[in-house]
Amino acid sequence: MNYPRDTLECGHSLAELSAYLDTGQIADPAHLDSCPECQAGLASLRKLSALGSELLSSDVADAGSGSDDWMQSILDNLRLELRPGRSIPLQSVHPDDTLWETEGSISALIRSVVDAHPGTAAGKCRLHGDVTTPGTLITVEVEIAVVYGHSMEERADQLREELARTLATHTELAIEAINITVTDVLEEQP
């Protein structure tokens, strides 16, 4: 598929230059620096790429903000189902009653405790151990992000206590340990 003027007089093609822009690879890189034709070709392709970025910005601006109505109506249409996860049995008074808490409800509870703490946000959160068998020792793993400037250790200690208290109130799990890992440090919003 050779188009007229695709091949430069130096023997290189614009197609090679195009691939070079994406991959940084070309047969003889030394040639590029010394060849005015290749330089001009590259400059033209780079200009196009910069214009492409302008088009992208303009298209993204035209698409509106993610907090606009169009996105809200898409989100409303989704009807995201809560993920129940495992069923955690609760003690019942009557033998014919079966009571459960869903794992999903407990991770959401953990996240809400972390999020309500000023300067922290929850990430992934896992209950390790067989939560479906009462009495099994369970380890809670929580990843958190902390806003820059807050003492992380102090924060983690406070959170651990608060989580222990909340889980003791709202679950019947035998919590062996609560491990908090700080995975991100966030910049305070200007």
């Binding site: 903000s65 993610g66 907090s67 996105m71 898409i74 989100l75 995201l80 809560l82 993920r83 996860g85 999903g104 991770s107 959401a108 996240r111 946000a121 929850a122 990430g123 992934k124 959160c125 896992r126 990843e143 992000a145 806003v147 995975t183 991100d184 966030l186 910049e187 919003q189």
Partner: peptide, 24 residues
């Protein structure tokens, strides 16, 4: 404020609010 990775982790855990924040 939260980076993508954290939101994606939460969303994978079933957190609809985190998923919606990513979508927005």
């Amino acid at each position: 404020l939260v980076p993508d990775a954290l939101l994606a982790g939460r969303a994978a855990d079933g957190d609809t609010a985190a998923f919606e924040a990513l979508a927005r």
